[in-house]
Nucleic acid binder design. Structure first.
Length: 670
DNA sequence: AGACCCGGTTTTTTT
DNA sequence: AACCGGGTCT
């Protein structure tokens, strides 16, 4: 028989390709072996199967993910079939940009975002299959608390004899219960034993809360995840169609995911078991959101044949900083062994600075920032990090005095301020007339309308099936109807007119402005925020996407973007440690490293919380590439005791004294 | 009865 | 800065 030679041509744009052998590297545009170390290369070249990448701080975790994305795209996989779940959308965008620069802009088509934004997109697209109305409104934390408060106050639970948990506590308990898949009883018993007598009433509130959201087409953050999970695990036709379009799933910062998210990951990979998660147990800092650093080590039990790859070479920090941070984490009671090393040489010892007062601490930082700038360090390469947002108040004043531009991340967001929430509430009603929380908020803005009257109006609206009617006479039959008539006209217009979000926002602001001026004494200061808000709305073509973004991914950057040229973009970063996750700077200051503040006195009685505070200090100090300064004021104001002498944070005082330099700050008399 | 004003208390961290 | 409770005004 004659044997014919037949060569199979490689297809270019489908997933059905021959897998490259290691010798095949020449086919790639990018020289992966030269760009990555062996462990990174192994991770970046992975194709099918389940992978757990344990990546210590600064070991090129992002780089590895970026190269894997590029490589998959080079292999011809459809970018849209790659799903990259990250902690913030900023992180996802950054990765996609880097991959695009590396290869080409096919990489920007990768599916990416947070668990919540992915849930939002999916649930809107497959709303029917998920049993939802696609115009659902997303409740952020504050909204969720408002709803709970409404129920709490209506249930007649506030009696003088018995203490009943406040709205924050209730919201926290309910959320923790969902995210950790424990019952409310278990959580109350474990974390709030003093409320155990109220358990029945607490469960009642939860029941009403759940019904309320359902009836009013509202989803809170947890509902987004729960519905996504149910949709995926239900595995109906909709889910199958979605899953067949997803070929590779990658999850960044896996140490900060919780049980619910782990199940979503499980559901996402049901069709092909292709999953890569990346994380570092030593950087787990979100236990208050139900994350458990042990989850990452349970990953191998969740999936079949998990391959574990460890990244241990640190490319970020100079040796003295690495030794210092290794020492912090070595003292952790429970952790999985890692051996971070670097080939970088030189560099100064980290400096621990004792300042006599908080203000002197601020002045030191200002002076040092100016020094660094003299030495040629750009402001954007400098960051000041802190445990809690309010630690930076004094520093913010000093920076302003010295004319040093800064941008603050974390803490109270512009989107959470009362006046922005007011303005948003109008738009939310326009998008979803069943959004009772927003109705309530808007009604309360009007003179003479308090909780009771607002409720009355809402009851009337409910019997009219909450339709915004251009003529409120039909639905409102009470004494405030004249005052409310104008409001109804506005809402009707907002709801029905087909115009851009920015035009709707303008209508809202015109209406809101007089009420706003009345409500806030400091309206001049707040006015700026409204202007910024209006600018943001210009970026959107649909109201739904504007509102979804506002709830899930508040745009902090836009504050900087407004009218800022590149030169104006030069600023020092002030950030909570939580918001600094995954980032790095040439020079890093950690302020307020004082016992009782960092670690916070609230964690003092609980060893697990204390350990998390330690990991926070670890995350903070591993952000530094070249310089690390840790400062603390020796005298702290305490409400009860007045000025008291404070002790430096235990995480600092425990450190081997050879690993850092100590400075005592003294004020110079002029 | 319900809205509103005042003053004291309390603030972790985030999607 | 926002929340809660108590007292006062409409």
């Amino acid at each position: 028989m004659i044997q014919k030679k037949y060569t199979l041509k490689r297809l270019n744009n489908t997933g059905a390709l021959a897998k490259p052998t290691p010798k095949d590297e020449s086919r790639f545009v990018i020289k992966y072996q030269h760009e990555l170390n062996p462990a990174q290369l192994e991770a970046a070249s992975a194709l099918d199967g389940a992978y757990l990448i344990i990546a210590g701080a600064g070991t090129g975790k992002t780089r590895t993910l970026v190269y894997r994305v590029a490589r998959l795209v080079e292999l011809g996989y459809d970018p849209k079939s790659i799903l990259l779940l990250t902690f913030t959308r900023k992180a996802a965008n950054e990765m996609m940009n880097r991959a695009s620069v590396l290869l080409d802009n096919r990489c920007s088509k990768v599916n990416g975002g947070t668990f919540h934004s992915f849930a939002n997109m999916t649930l809107r697209k497959y709303s029917k299959a998920a049993g939802l109305d696609s115009s659902f409104t997303i409740l952020d934390q504050g909204d969720t608390e408002d709803v709970i408060n409404l129920i709490r106050s209506q249930a007649g639970l506030i009696t003088k004899e018995k203490r009943f948990p406040n709205k924050q506590t209730l919201a926290k308990v309910f959320s923790l219960s969902v995210n950790t898949e424990r019952t409310v009883e278990e959580i109350i018993e474990a974390d709030y034993p003093h409320f155990i007598d109220n358990i029945d009433k607490i469960l009642d509130v939860k029941k009403v809360f759940v019904n309320y959201k359902q009836k009013n087409n509202l989803l809170d953050y947890d509902d987004l995840l729960v519905h996504l999970k149910n949709f995926l695990l239900g595995f109906g036709p909709g889910a199958k169609s979605l899953l067949s379009s997803i070929k590779f799933v990658m999850v960044d910062e896996y140490q900060d995911t919780n049980k619910l998210q782990a199940e979503i990951v499980k559901g996402l990979t049901r069709m092909n078991n292709n999953i890569m998660v990346v994380g570092d147990d030593s950087q787990s800092i979100y236990s208050f959101r139900g994350a458990n650093f042990k989850n990452i080590m349970e990953f191998p039990n969740l999936f079949k044949d998990v391959k574990i790859i460890k990244l241990e070479e640190n490319y970020r920090s100079v040796q003295p900083i690495l030794s210092f941070t290794n020492d912090i984490i070595d003292k952790a009671i429970e952790k999985y062994p890692k051996n971070l090393f670097t080939h970088k040489t030189g560099g100064d010892l980290p400096v621990i600075v004792a300042a006599s007062t908080e203000n002197l601490q601020s002045k030191f930082i200002v002076e040092k920032i100016l020094d660094l700038r003299e030495e040629g360090v750009a402001l954007k390469d400098i960051a000041v990090l802190f445990r809690s947002s309010f630690f930076s108040f004094d520093l913010e004043i000093e920076l302003s005095k010295a004319n040093i531009p800064f941008q603050k991340f974390g803490g109270m967001k512009f989107i959470e301020t009362a006046h922005i929430k007011d303005a948003l509430a109008f738009l939310r009603i326009a998008a979803n007339p069943k959004d009772v929380v927003s109705w309530y908020r808007v009604l309360l803005l009007h003179e003479g309308v308090g909780p009771k009257t607002a409720q009355k109006i809402l009851d009337e609206l409910a019997t009219a099936h909450l339709t915004i009617n251009a003529n409120p006479d039909n639905v409102v039959s009470f004494k405030f109807k004249d005052a409310i008539a104008k409001l109804f006209q506005l809402l009707y217009k907002l709801h029905t007119e087909k115009n851009l979000p920015s035009e709707k926002a303008q209508m809202v602001l015109d209406y809101y402005y007089p009420l706003f001026k009345d409500k806030y004494d400091d309206f001049n200061k707040r006015k700026k925020d409204l202007d910024i808000f209006q600018n943001i709305t210009e970026n959107y073509r649909s109201l739904d996407s504007l509102l979804a973004d506002m709830a899930i991914e508040p745009i902090i950057d836009s504050v900087v973007d407004i009218g800022a040229e590149d030169k104006e973009n030069e600023f020092v970063t002030l950030s909570t440690i939580h918001s600094a996750k995954g980032l790095e700077w040439h020079s890093v200051f950690i302020i307020h490293a004082v016992e009782g503040f960092f670690p916070s006195s609230r964690s003092a009685d609980n060893i697990e919380n204390l350990e998390e505070e330690r990991r926070l200090m670890y995350v903070a100090s591993t952000r530094a590439k070249q310089n690390l300064f840790i400062t603390y004021p020796m005298n702290i104001y305490d409400r009860e005791a007045g000025i008291t002498l404070s002790k430096p944070s235990r995480f600092i005082s425990e450190i081997n004294s050879d690993l850092a330099e100590g400075w005592l700050l003294e004020e110079e008399f002029e």
